[in-house]
């Protein structure tokens, strides 16, 4: 299958995402922020970075990029859109996902391993997991504290739209080990149609044991399986 990877000038996880996609045996195409053509992508990834510097508010400028018009239309048509870190911030700013990402409660940037509990398998991104699975995936952000009003939080919980929650290594509630102080320990959410996922942690950094964890690969494989039905090419087949 084909993953489209958005490239804003300040994006830096684009190459990491391409690496993960290719490791999973799929095709990656880079989508330049000034273009509108999604080049036939089956799933569009909005990767991590500082899209246009994020000096105002993370993602606040990126939502107006030409590429984002196409991404929004694609999402509204049911296309798979996956926002990671800065991508999650952009999706919230673009109102493709509810809530907002604010400064970490520590008021400091945090780069560290986190443990995520899969809270729903009812999405293309998590269908390959089991509910309650723990994934070790690192975070790297200064503005990752998920906030929303009570009503929205209640709706997200009711509709089981929380995709991942930060937990401790043993699966218990994150408490003071939360990397950012997110409400309800939310690490990722999906939209009502369940075709748009935003998450702060970086699964593309957790696709090889050499780098500490391969749990992130399960999400890439899950998307591929959902799209093609028949699953991914075996790793290395592209060589």
């Amino acid at each position: 299958m084909r993953f489209g990877i958005a490239v804003f000038p300040g994006t830096w996880s684009d190459r990491d995402c391409r690496h993960a996609v290719e490791l999973a045996g799929h095709e990656a195409v880079m989508l330049w922020h000034k273009d509108r053509d999604l080049q036939g992508s089956d799933c569009v990834i909005l990767p991590g970075g500082f899209a246009y510097g994020d000096y105002l508010r993370a993602g606040a400028v990126a939502r107006f990029a030409p590429l984002m018009e196409s991404v929004a239309a694609f999402a509204n048509n049911g296309g798979l859109v996956w926002g990671i870190c800065n991508g999650f911030q952009i999706l919230c700013e673009a109102h493709l996902l509810p809530g907002a990402l604010t400064r970490n409660s520590s008021l400091e940037f945090r780069c560290m391993p986190t443990w995520l509990r899969v809270e729903t398998v009812d999405s293309a991104f998590t269908a390959g997991c089991a509910r309650g699975d723990l994934l070790q995936v690192p975070v790297s952000h200064g503005e990752g504290r998920y906030v929303a009003d009570e009503e929205t939080l209640a709706m997200l919980e009711r509709e089981e739209r929380v995709a991942f929650r930060y937990v401790r290594r043993d699966g218990s509630s994150a408490g003071d080990e939360s990397p950012n102080g997110s409400m309800h320990d939310i690490a990722g959410v999906v939209n009502a149609r369940r075709n748009v996922l935003g998450m702060m942690p970086h699964p593309e950094r957790a696709c090889e044991q050499l780098l500490g964890s391969s749990d992130g690969m399960r999400l890439f494989e899950s998307v591929a399986t959902s799209v093609s039905g028949s699953g991914a090419m075996p790793v290395g087949a592209a060589l």
Binding site: S13, R15, H19, A20, H202, E204, C207, L211
Partner: peptide, 16 residues
């Protein structure tokens, strides 16, 4: 200190 630095971007850091 180092948790305030992104030490993993680039998918290359083998020893943290």
């Amino acid at each position: 200190v180092y948790r305030r630095y992104d030490h993993q971007v680039g998918d290359a850091t083998v020893i943290l």
